[in-house]
Write a protein that binds this DNA or RNA. Structure first.
Lengths: 155, 155
DNA sequence: GCAATTTGTTTTAGGCTTAAAGTAACTTCA
DNA sequence: TGAAGTTACTTTAAGCCTAAAACAAATTGC
């Protein structure tokens, strides 16, 4: 008899979780030893690198899937280190515009290059075909998760 | 031209990371609202539920992939709540044996049932075939990650 | 026996994380 | 205008997380 769907889901989830946990730990360790930085900081810089113009704190929290309070602390530390700069919107003084500094952009580019190489090495034993399949399945899964009922969704 | 392997790895990794992040958030939210508990606590209970005999703190950290210092705090809180109990090994007084209490086992069983149903619902849009493929690929990935050079590995 | 080392666990310092409460600024609308 | 409501962000309290230092108990080598 085939496994019931629920048991199969649980097995898949635990395997996925373990793989991502291990990969995350490797990346965190690498960022720590090579750049004395952290993954959340890298994520913020990465989100800002993708933008051409300054974006607001709220836009950043939406993108990063973290709470706004959390982002405040992260941005504070990155501003202290001179990697990003913050500016109050003259038209709406509640709003902060955040942008990568030149130093921040350089730091990110350097980290991103090593990050990409590390990630690639972690997936090196997977065949091209397996990677294509994995991309397709994770894309499907993400769509399903995005379309499904979200925590705070109006009717 | 096909994507270079490194770019493909990055894409797959980001999709995997986003999916697991979303799923984890749903699970955390669920544990919080339904059981006023957390995912790390659930993980500890889950690891202990699988054991027939008490296990040591060190064995638990190995299983859970968390630091020993982190586990100390988690176990303290679970002991306070009466979900697990701790006992010093009479033969080696450095060693703590940890075991699920009857209350802890009941609490876990109840949480695990809902947890399984939630996880299954999150994967509900994936076909059986896709799930089988995903299981195979994540299993392969985990083996590769386990066999590859780990952070603290002797030559 | 006993000093040196190793091992199992806890403590500490600092960063990440959230939800909830708080603050300030803007908008609505009478 | 100005009270009520909304929005953008920060602060707070509490838990999670790690690496490194500290501690205590066991083992090893003389």
């Amino acid at each position: 008899m085939a496994a019931p769907h629920a048991k199969q889901s649980l097995r898949v989830w635990l395997r996925m979780l373990r793989a991502t946990t291990i990969i995350e730990k490797r990346i965190r360790g690498y960022l720590k030893t090579e750049f004395d930085s952290t993954l959340p900081r890298f994520d913020v810089l990465s989100a800002l690198d993708r933008e051409t113009a300054p974006i607001t704190m709220s836009q950043l929290t939406d993108h990063l899937l973290v709470s706004n309070g959390n982002l405040t602390g992260l941005v504070n530390r990155l501003v202290e280190d001179g990697l990003i700069s913050r500016e109050i919107d003259p038209d709406d003084r509640r709003v902060q515009h955040v942008v990568l500094s030149p130093d921040g952009r350089n730091a990110f580019r350097e980290m991103a290059e090593k990050h990409e190489a590390l990630v690639d090495s972690l997936f090196s034993e997977m065949s091209d075909e397996d990677m294509a399949t994995l991309l397709r399945l994770t894309t499907t899964l993400n769509s399903a998760l995005q379309n499904g009922a979200r925590p705070a969704e109006d009717a």
